[in-house]
Design a protein around this nucleic acid. Structure first.
Length: 111
DNA sequence: GAGGTGACTGCGA
DNA sequence: CTCGCAGCCACCT
């Protein structure tokens, strides 16, 4: 866990997100210990498309549940489509019932 | 080695 | 309620 880069750590956590669930940058950042620097998580996602296997970055949204990185998927509607395909409803570029679908690694993985 | 960037967050006006 | 500013840390040039 120390030989891998910060990016890989983010990728692994994101890949652990159950289907139909979503997480936030801050939650992942906090879980990795870089709390307060959610930018690093988002920055890691910038290279997520280069990681293998691919990272379900569509399940990672900002604190408000808004699809901030949708534009990075190549198509602004692609991220929304992927989430809806998993059963997650999107409204106004935001996750419906985000609070209910929120998946916190610091808690889920702690149990 | 130093500088710039960024898929965020929280607080203040 | 909405808008703006500053802090944060790893990666790239």
């Amino acid at each position: 866990m120390e030989d891998i880069s910060f990016y890989d750590q983010v990728y692994q956590v994101v890949r652990l997100i159950p289907k139909g669930r979503v997480s936030s940058y801050g939650a992942i950042a906090s879980y990795l210990g870089t709390k307060g620097s959610a930018r690093m998580v988002g920055y890691a996602m910038n290279a997520a498309h280069t990681a293998s296997p691919p990272v379900p970055a569509q399940r990672v949204v900002n604190r408000n549940g808004m699809l901030t990185g949708k534009f990075h998927f190549g198509s602004p509607n692609l991220m929304q489509q992927l989430l809806e395909n998993e059963g997650v409803k999107i409204e106004d570029d935001k996750v419906a019932d985000f609070k209910n679908l929120f998946w916190d690694p610091a808690i889920e993985l702690e149990l």
